[in-house]
Computed example of a mutant assay.
Amino acid sequence: MFETISYETRGKTAWITLNRPDKLNAFNAVMHKEMAAAIKEAGKDDSVRALVITGAGRAFCSGQDLSESPEGADYSDILRKGYNPMIKAIVGMEKPVICAVNGVAAGAGMSLALACDFRIASEKASFIEAFIHVGLVPDAGSLYFLPRLVGHAKAMELAVLGDKVNAAQAKEFGLVNKLVSEEDFVMEVETFAEKLAHMPTKAIGLIKRYLNKSWESDLNEVLEFEAQAQKIAGESHDHQEGLAAFLEKRKPSYTGK
C-alpha cells in the first residue's frame, strides 16, 4: 500500500513507521503524501485510539532528503504543501500521538517528534536542530514547539548552535517523556500506547485541544474552554462508565465514546 512508510494496527493502536532506512528515513515528496494519508486513516478509524510514529533501522528521521531537492527549490512550497499539513494533522488529531524515537531525529525529523503529544526515546536516540549547519532556519513547527518544551533560552541555544543532544540530555531538557533501554524499547512503547488506547479517548482529545488553545488564550478564555470541555466529557459514555466503575469498585472499561 505504501512505498516509504508502513502502516499497521496493533490492538487499538495504529503504528506508522518511516521506512527509508537507507536514507535514514529522510522525507521526500512521496513520504509527505503517504504520511498525510496514514495520519488521516488513523484519525478517522474509530477502532484506533492511539497512534505511534517511529522509524525503521537505526534512525528515526534525518529530516528533508536534500539530495531530492532540486537546485533553487522553493522550501516554503515544500513546507506549505508537505510538512505543515502533516504537523497540523498530528496536533489536530483528538487522539494521543506517541513518537517512538528509535535513533537520530534531525532537522524536520526532530520537528516531527516535537509535534507529537508524547516522546519515548531509546538510549540510542539523539536530537539535533540541524538546519543551521546548512544555513537554514528550524521549520515544521520547531520554532513553536521547542521553546514551549525547553524554554526560550535553551531553544535559542539548540536552534542557533545546532549541537547534538543525546537521549539522557533530551530527558533532562524536557524533550522526551520517557527514556528506555534499546532492548526494552519496543515493549515499553507498546505498553505505553496500549495504556493510552484504553483510557477515555474523548477526554484525552479535549485535554489536547484546549491545552493547545491555552497558549494563545487568557485566563477567562481558558475557564470557558474548560466549561465547554467538561460539558462534552460529562455527556460521554466513558464518563458514565467511569462513575459506575467507581461506585461499583471495579476497573472501568472505556470505549472512547
Results as ranks from 00 to 15, higher is better:
27 F>T: 00
198 H>T: 07
1 M>G: 15
101 V>F: 08
191 T>C: 08
202 K>V: 05
153 A>E: 15
175 L>R: 05
26 A>S: 11
170 A>Q: 04
168 A>Y: 09
169 Q>L: 13
63 G>R: 03
143 L>V: 12
196 L>Q: 06
164 K>E: 15
54 T>E: 13
100 A>M: 10
215 W>G: 04
14 A>G: 11
59 A>H: 12
130 A>E: 12
234 G>Q: 01
2 F>C: 15
257 K>T: 03
17 T>E: 05
175 L>D: 07
11 G>N: 10
83 Y>I: 01
6 S>I: 10
91 V>M: 07
150 V>E: 04
164 K>I: 14
118 F>I: 09
144 Y>I: 14
220 N>E: 10
222 V>T: 07
111 S>M: 08
47 S>K: 13
192 F>G: 04
121 A>H: 05
164 K>D: 15
246 F>N: 08
58 R>G: 15
79 L>A: 11
89 A>V: 07
47 S>P: 14
39 I>Y: 10
81 K>T: 14
36 A>P: 13
75 Y>V: 00
251 K>G: 10
248 E>G: 12
224 E>F: 12
233 A>H: 11
123 E>T: 02
54 T>F: 03
98 I>D: 04
254 Y>H: 01
19 N>L: 08
39 I>P: 09
31 M>P: 10
77 D>Q: 13
69 S>G: 01
69 S>M: 00
20 R>N: 03
186 V>P: 07
79 L>W: 06
228 Q>S: 08
219 L>P: 07
239 H>M: 04
99 C>R: 01
30 V>C: 07
233 A>T: 09
144 Y>A: 14
241 E>K: 06
106 A>F: 11
215 W>A: 05
218 D>G: 06
9 T>A: 14
145 F>Y: 10
83 Y>C: 00
169 Q>M: 07
241 E>Y: 10
229 A>P: 03
252 P>M: 05
207 I>E: 15
34 E>K: 00
202 K>Q: 07
104 V>F: 09
199 M>V: 02
177 N>P: 13
93 M>V: 14
197 A>L: 04
4 T>R: 13
102 N>D: 15
13 T>W: 04
212 N>K: 09
220 N>D: 15
95 K>L: 12
223 L>S: 05
45 D>L: 13
54 T>L: 14
176 V>C: 11
47 S>F: 15
216 E>M: 12
140 A>I: 01
105 A>Q: 00
254 Y>G: 06
59 A>P: 05
126 S>Y: 01
134 V>T: 08
204 I>V: 12
112 L>E: 06
184 D>V: 03
107 G>Q: 03
189 V>D: 01
8 E>C: 11
117 D>Y: 00
247 L>P: 05
106 A>T: 07
116 C>F: 08
86 M>Y: 10
63 G>T: 02
31 M>F: 12
193 A>V: 01
44 K>L: 13
184 D>T: 10
18 L>D: 00
155 A>K: 02
65 D>L: 00
14 A>K: 09
234 G>S: 00
27 F>Y: 02
12 K>H: 14
188 E>L: 03
255 T>N: 12
240 Q>G: 13
160 V>T: 08
204 I>L: 15
99 C>V: 06
249 K>W: 05
206 L>Y: 10
5 I>R: 02
194 E>C: 03
